[in-house]
Every structure is written in C-alpha cells, then in structure tokens.
Amino acid sequence: MTTIDLDQQLVELRSAADAYAARHQFIPDLTWPEGVRIAVNFTCDFDAMLLRRLLNEPPMQLAKGEFGGRVGIWRLIELFDAHGVKATIFTPGRICELYPEALRAVVESGHEIADHMWEHRVPKEPGLEEDHLAKTVTALERIAGRRPVGTRSSHSAALLRQYGFIYRSERSADQRPYYEYDEGGGNGLLNLPMHYVIDDAMYFNFNWLGTDASAQRITDPERVGDIWWAAFRQQYSVGGYLNVCMHPFQSGRALRIAMLDRLIGKMKTLPGVWFPTCEQVARHCIDHHPPRAGTL
C-alpha cells in the first residue's frame, strides 16, 4: 500500500465524519426561560404490547406489554399530575384503537401526545411509510384535538416536516437539544436527546432488543434511581437538559412508580427545575435558539 492510498483513506474518512457533523447544529449557549436552570422531560413510549405483537412474540409476552395499557399508563398519569409534571406520551397510532380511554385521560391532564409510529415500525417502502405516518397523525389528532408535532421514530425528516413536525426525540449526539438536518442540509428538526442510560427498558426489561437470556442483567429501582439522580445532578450543575424515557409496562409497576415519586420529589427540592412537555422545550429552543435561516 502506498502513501497515496493512505492519504486517500484520510480524505474519505474525514469527509464522512465532516458530512455527518455538518448535519448537526448544537446549541452551546442554550438558555432556559427566566428562573429555569434545567428542563426535565418525562416521556413515555406507550407501545404496550404492540412491539411484542409485531415481533410475533407469544401470549405471555403480549400480556407483559398489556400491563402498560391496563395499569401502568394510569399510574403514570396520576404520578405526573400529583407532581405538576407535564409529560409527553409517544404513542403508536394503533394504541388509539387499543387504549382510547387511557389516551383521553392523558389529554385531559394536559400532557402531550406525540408520534411513536403507527405500529412501532417505519416501513421501508416510501409510500407505505407515508401511509403509516398519515394514519398516525389522523388517529392522534382525533384523540388529542390537535396534530402531533413531535416524534420518537426514524421516520424521514422530509416526511416529518411535510406533516408539520418540529422535533424528534431519539438520539444523543449532544446532551442539550440540537438541530439535525438531512443529507441535503435541509429538513431541519430539533432533536431532544434521549440516552439509553435514562431508559427504563435497559434495566428492567428481559429480552429487550432481542437479547438472549445470558445477556440479561435486570436490576432494581433503587439502583436505577441513583443513576438517574446522578445524571440529573450533573445536568443541573451545567444548566442542561434531561429526558427520562419510560415504558408504562415497566415503569408503571408499583415499585417503580414509588421510585419515580421519590426521584421527582427530590428534583423538586432544588430551585429552577422545569417539567414541561417536549413540545414546550422544542418551541422554546426554536424561538430563542433558531436553526439555520429558513430551515424550520
């Protein structure tokens, strides 16, 4: 291999890294509304048994997910309401047909309903992808009385923009909210970063993401509460942001509701902790830290 070949590799790799970096616009000087030191988004991925069904898992697995719709979501609404927390419920469109009563209670309490795909997948076929997104927007609008503006999905940015979405909450290239653009540099969306460290499924769910028995390290809520509190304290100290991702079929279990109750209670002992919906955070960022001209 000659030096020329090696230099060519450097050019190619650097260009790949640069192009990826250029699709991200961070907000290093992020500020919050007067008096706010940290924004904490409590978010629920309300897929209940849908992902289990999509993967053709057996009946007991469906029942495990069903707990989220029959029990968990109700307890989480009660918990958020008791603390004055406005949460965001990322909801697959199909859940509107499975648990409409619970979703109406979510809306009644002033929480945000956002997109979490039609049946917890993004079809590869562009026509079907749009069909699924359109169905979800219609279903969520019917329940919430307004169209969703946020998503937790890998739907294409162009399609999301076309349907009026302003934010996504998926990845974590930065701990603060940031903008993401597509390959062409357009179709900007604000991303509200969520990290697996602050995701209940990583600690409590058996067989998450298809992992086998030997990969399981299920743990207890006290340990998880400690990890999340440490993450909160660090972001609090830098005036940052925290997105807590929960699944009602896991966090809705009584022992975890009790842990969340203690965690939120502790957060509230500090001044300047803001518990808005994801949409409120997104609108604040877009208004005060706008994206590149004309991109959103």
């Binding site: 009946p59 007991m60 495990k64 707990f67 029990v71 028995a213």
Partner: peptide, 29 residues
C-alpha cells in the same frame, strides 16, 4: 422470555379440565 409459555389452546383446555385458575400471568399485579 422470562414469562412462561402457553399454547393458543392452554387456557381453553384448562377451563375444560375444570381448573379454577392459571397461576402466572403478567397483564396485572
């Protein structure tokens, strides 16, 4: 899966056999 397994017929057959309850389910506490 750490949940136990039933077939599509299990519950029906248990009823037919006169069982009063199924001992493990995850849809409630």
């Amino acid at each position: 899966y750490a949940v136990g397994a039933v077939s599509p017929n299990t519950v029906d057959l248990l009823l037919e056999a006169g069982y009063l309850y199924l001992g493990n389910g995850l849809a409630d506490d």
